[in-house]
Design a protein around this nucleic acid. Sequence first.
DNA 1: TAAATTTAAGTAAACGTTTACGCATCCTAT
DNA 2: ATAGGATGCGTAAACGTTTACTTAAATTTA
Lengths: 335, 335
Amino acid sequence: MSYTIKDIARITNVSTATVSRVINGQGGYSKATEEKVLHAIEELGYRPNAFARGLISKKSDTVGLLFPEVSSQFSSKILRGVEDAAHLLDSSVIVCNTASHGQRTMKYLQLLAEKRVDGILFVSEVMTEEYYRKLESMKIPVVLISTESYQYPLPFVKVDDRHAAFTATDYLLKMGHRKIGMISGNKEDAIAGQPRIDGFIQAMNNKGLTVQDANIVYSHGFSFHDGLIGLPKLLAQAPDITAVFAASDAVALGAISAAYKLGIKVPEDLSIIGFDDLPMAEMSIPPLTTVAQPLEEMGRVAAELLFSMMKDGGKTESRIIPHYVAERESVKKIL
Amino acid sequence: MSYTIKDIARITNVSTATVSRVINGQGGYSKATEEKVLHAIEELGYRPNAFARGLISKKSDTVGLLFPEVSSQFSSKILRGVEDAAHLLDSSVIVCNTASHGQRTMKYLQLLAEKRVDGILFVSEVMTEEYYRKLESMKIPVVLISTESYQYPLPFVKVDDRHAAFTATDYLLKMGHRKIGMISGNKEDAIAGQPRIDGFIQAMNNKGLTVQDANIVYSHGFSFHDGLIGLPKLLAQAPDITAVFAASDAVALGAISAAYKLGIKVPEDLSIIGFDDLPMAEMSIPPLTTVAQPLEEMGRVAAELLFSMMKDGGKTESRIIPHYVAERESVKKIL
DNA sequence: TAAATTTAAGTAAACGTTTACGCATCCTAT
DNA sequence: ATAGGATGCGTAAACGTTTACTTAAATTTA
């Protein structure tokens, strides 16, 4: 096996207590002893055992990060931010792919509980009572990312979806559009669904425009495919629209592809604005104008919140992260 | 704090040894005792402490996964596969974003060593002597993903880059193209650079065609931007080409965007084939034909290899994962 | 029925740290 | 010269499990 503190103690003729003190820089030893010990550690390549440390300190220097789907651009941006913040504080992150599956999620929570993670970050998932109870029993800080809970008092980090949808729609209005449609994603989604629809309607109303039912199509989710089939449907319902607000970038790209197939030019014939600002937004043709969620920053902020809760033990306030319009070329100004 | 095995023992009037045996299903207790213990565990919501377990078993049920860049579609697909395989074996994965930075990588290895991870997965990075020595001192299995080492005997999981490049080029040839250019990515990259160039040249030669210097442009990396500036450059050098092989999907999408700006239609005027088959490949206009690396599967296979090495202690053989052409619409058949 | 075996448990050491407590030794101030 | 406080360090318990060794009781075997 590898060396232990006892080996170092034996070799340097001091007690394990002293070695421990030197390792942790706690003072209470002479310069000479310090050097002797440090030298031996270097020599043997000794590394403290996190198990033994954790047993005493009750800390793992590890946090758990749960995603419904790890392999999406959305998730990976957040992961990047979390990882970055964690790394700065010498903490590690364990990622879990819940696949939005209750049983699987519970199993992960169980696992994270056994591993005594110091905190948990919960991304884009609805908080069920089962999860919450488990989380509570773990007695560790939790912060929600890109989701929030109305039932349970958990701090969250997200953009204001309704407001951001308002901003997106308002951008279209400012560019002169009046007949605007929306491909809304999943209406049942309490976070990214209804609020974005509300923001859309509010922006329209705000300009004295009413929104017909025909101007919104609801899809199954927020995917490329949803945009692909959503646009033709929208166009059938509301043929005279000049612009569409897509509830996600993936939906927007799907819509652009559909438009292309229909011989509709973006933005000449139809303007499209997305939501998210994923890396793929700038790779499309034309590059997608979209309302940006700073995902990486959200990850970072959430992690920082989590760490501060670990330290102060207490509660934190939630954070609404500012969104903004990433202006590119998929929206045309009209008269 | 939370409950311990001692609490369970006290409550059920048995020894901690018996509780431990019940928890691990090792037998040596009566049905009545088992029920009593299990019931108490359920009642209190007791969960074993992974620190204490690890101290004895010397296992953490955790693996480390190192990426140069976690937030790329490439990485996240691999992560998905790894996570999946790990989950099946009740193991967790700690992700580390090395940013291709030596010092940062070493710090991670240090951290993973202290946490006593059971194995390490190293993605897309060149293995330096420093890393290797550290890895060796940890005495745990390591497998490389999408990279390999000529210097050190580490098992790897990857596609055959040269062969895949051959396949991509050959596909273009089969579609009738003869004047073919390549945007090669970073030539210095020993894995994704020169081998893909070699495969390209080999396929051309195989058909009796020689490759002019002018038919290849070398870029800095494998990014969208590299494709964006690479295509005009290639076209300047070799104006008569009818097809291009891009060394990555990102490069291919960049090239498509550049073509669009130049008023060149894909695939009517110019065919483009990519490399990777990332999710974005099917979202482009036109959908990108590309030679696919099954990244998720690679992650899964690598993790399985790692786990089998943990169990058998021994060496494993490397795996060359089969690639294939994902045929979409960016390549036109010509006469 | 006595011996042998099996079953169901308990005792205590070990894993590798940290830390409360204790004890010399040395210095400083009176 | 001596009380008092630093300074430098050691001893041993504690953290929560697992497991090698025991042991007593129950069961089987001869």
